[in-house]
Each structure stands twice: as C-alpha cells, then as structure tokens.
C-alpha cells in the first residue's frame, strides 16, 4: 500500500465523527490507540497520538457539523488528519492560546472546554498544520515521528 507520493503506507483507517456525538467521543481515539499498540509502536508515542486524537475527536463533536479522522501509519511516522465541515475558526492564533475556549456551558459540565484542546494537540505532535475557512470547515494535519 502506498500514498499519492509513492510512500509506503503500513496501515490506514478513516473514521467518521458525527456532530454533537459527545457521549461517545473518545472511542475513535481509544481504537487508534489499540491499533498502534498492536502494531508495536512505543508507548510514549502512542500516548501522544492518543491525546491528540482524543482532543481532536472532542473538538469535532463539540464544534463541527461532522468530520473525519484519518490515521495513516508510515514506516517512519504516524500522520493524523482531522477534517471537518463546520463553522471554521475565526481566529486561529486565539484558538491556539491556552485557556481560550468557545465551548458551551454544557460541554464544560462534561469536563471539556478548558481551552487546552488545540494547544495540547500541537504540543503532542512533532509537526502541526491547521487550515480553516469560515463557514466551510477546518483541517488539521499532525505528524508523529516513530
């Protein structure tokens, strides 16, 4: 299996996150974690990927109108692609600031909306790219070196 650049792909999986699917959010992160464990990836790297996946999954459930999470494993790195259809992020610098959150009171009651989601994703990843278009959606690409 290889990607569009001819790079060898060890494994890939795409999962769907529905809008407002907060109660089950985290299941995809847990499943990615199991997959990486089975493939023999080192625990500290798995934990960083799992944290970033969990935060991304929560964000999709809270803020987007639905989206996908794609895990691609290459021989030298793991790529996590998070794409949503949604309102987009008005000010990415603000969203990356620790403590800044637009989450509702309901979401905060469930333990999220601390304004640490995006900074946590960036901190966990070795490379982090984000693009957002207002009224269309947001795409995040994260790489984790193996």
């Amino acid at each position: 299996m290889s990607n569009e650049h001819g790079e060898q792909v060890t494994f890939q999986e795409t999962r769907q996150v529905e809008q407002g699917d907060f109660a089950t959010a985290g299941q995809i992160a847990a499943s990615f974690k199991n997959t990486l464990k089975k493939l023999g990836v080192a625990s500290p790297v798995i934990r960083r990927i799992a944290i970033a996946s969990y935060e991304a999954e929560i964000n999709l459930a809270i803020h987007s109108w639905g989206g996908t999470m794609r895990l691609i494993i290459y021989p030298d790195r793991v790529r996590l692609l998070v794409d949503d259809v949604g309102p987009g992020i008005e000010n990415i610098d603000l969203a990356m600031q620790e403590g800044y959150s637009t989450a509702s009171e309901e979401v905060r009651m469930l333990g999220f909306g601390a304004g640490m989601g995006m900074p946590n994703m960036k901190r966990c990843a070795d490379a982090f790219k984000i693009e957002s278009v207002l009224g269309k959606g947001t795409s995040i690409s994260m790489d984790f070196n193996l």
């Binding site: 960083r48 909306g113 601390a114 966990c124």
Partner: peptide, 13 residues
C-alpha cells in the same frame, strides 16, 4: 482536575 484537557496536558502515565 475537573477539566480533562488540563489533565491531558501531560503525557506522564
């Protein structure tokens, strides 16, 4: 913490 993202700041197990 009562905020899970504050717990997820650190990767220590």
């Amino acid at each position: 913490s009562d905020m899970m993202s504050d717990v997820l700041v650190s990767t220590e197990c």
